[in-house]
Write a protein that binds this DNA or RNA. Structure first.
Lengths: 252, 252
DNA sequence: TTCTCCTTATTACTCCGACTTAATAGGCGC
DNA sequence: GCGCCTATTAAGTCGGAGTAATAAGGAGAA
């Protein structure tokens, strides 16, 4: 059964290719990732009961302790709930912390559900324009400078390069920080990261059909001018166009 | 040191008062709660390094396993990060999952930070009106019936009674479900729950200064009529007034 | 001197096996 | 048939031993 503890010293080169998991990721993290994706992708339906700790940990060929730590992570994100005698069961979707960065990453690890992507864009279309409005009202000179520099960098390198995408992230991060609202920063950053997963699909499917610089420039101008209404409107356009791009690239 | 394992069978009545922790809560959950509140309240500053596993678990008089599981929970919520040799350090606030229900609960366990409460209300003022707009456009007959019944129940019992507050929750939950947007439901429910903690302060400080029924009725009428703009505006009023009430009740 | 490489010591990570607690199912008495 | 009580089962907790990774300090070379 457990051929880990005994063969750990001698037979590692034969059976397992050096490291049984991705480097830098701990064992319980890898298990949590594996189970998390399985649950979020629907492999385990809400209400399902996982195999008992001993069985499952033996099946995964890890110790009970490592398995339990992974379960604690999933429980912390609202995916499962464990009770003595009853076992560990998958909670209904509404109990999941859908906005948790890890949960979002797991949701986008496989084929992301189209309806959920639309939900996220709807939420984004609500929050981002409001964030731009706050930024226009509260930004200071330093943040404005970062936005300007990032915009220039986006012009130099295009979004096709990694440097260009980094500049795009810097631009949006600067806007978020300018809102002076930590809750909004965390929320928007999570959703933004998740949405950018889908962008990779987009990049693969077709070349960028449109130049995003002018739209970004409009947002910057509005924020620089301190015009909340204009910033709101300009960011709304940006989000809508991003959704359009993603929709074209998504299956069916 | 460990008077837990040996006195568990005979001397429990003498030393420990039956259960050393809150009933229904597991040991690692209790530890996570304890450390979580300590971190969120600022007792440990970002960048601080916690004592080593062995030291801290001995100080808390629990096994290393239970302590580690608690740390995994905190790490899952972005509060801490553990690395070999480096120890477990508190992450900067921007890495925290501030919208996680547990993190919010820990933040509101002590004296909630005034600026953070304002941030949450700002976010709420952005999301809730948009949710009401979606609800007005998408609600079905069943959800409308629930809103109507809840509103009637709120009229019968006031918000001073538990039944009245339950009806209030049902009313808002029905609106959220009608948005057909899981992400919005989860987000709004988390923030709403957190904000309602502060409402308890409010209730204690003074009697409710104003009758909330007419404002709720306006929201219901707009949703029933399918008028998105009106629903947005009516909900905006509701959130703003709730913020006003909370501000009066908050210290300084 | 300064940089790089390597050693070392510290710390988290993992595993194991036993015991404890709690909740359910089924039997027992009423 | 109803409620209590015991037996079973699975999670919870514990202690200790051994492993792996990394930050830090020292040795050697440029």
């Amino acid at each position: 059964m457990t051929d880990r503890g005994d063969t750990g010293a001698d037979g590692k080169a034969a059976a397992t290719p050096r490291t049984p998991r991705g480097t830098g990721r701990r064992l319980h993290g890898a298990i949590a990732h594996k189970l998390g994706t399985a649950i979020v992708s629907g492999e385990y339906a809400p209400g399902d009961i996982l195999s008992s700790e001993v069985d499952f940990s033996e099946a995964l060929d890890v110790s009970r302790g490592a398995y339990r730590e992974a379960i604690q992570v999933l429980a912390a994100k609202g995916l499962v709930e464990s009770r003595p005698k009853a076992g560990t069961r998958v909670l209904p979707r509404l109990r999941w912390n859908l906005l948790d960065p890890d949960v979002l990453a797991w949701a986008f690890a496989g084929e992301p559900d189209k309806g959920f992507v639309r939900n996220l864009f709807e939420l984004r279309a609500v929050v981002e324009p409001a964030a731009a409005r706050f930024a226009a009202e509260r930004r200071d000179r330093e943040e404005l400078r970062i936005m300007k520099d990032s915009l220039a960098a986006m012009r130099r390198h295009t979004l096709a390069t990694e440097a260009g995408r980094a500049a795009d992230r810097d631009f949006h991060d600067a806007i978020l920080r300018a809102t002076r609202n930590e809750a909004m920063i965390v929320l928007s950053a999570s959703i933004g990261a998740a949405v950018s997963w889908t962008t990779q699909y987009k990049q693969r499917a077709r070349a960028l059909p449109r130049n995003p610089i002018p739209d970004h420039a409009k947002v910057y101008d509005a924020i620089a001018a301190g015009d909340g209404d204009a910033a709101d409107a300009a960011m709304r356009v940006l989000v809508d166009l991003a959704f359009e791009d993603t929709r074209f690239a998504m299956p069916e």
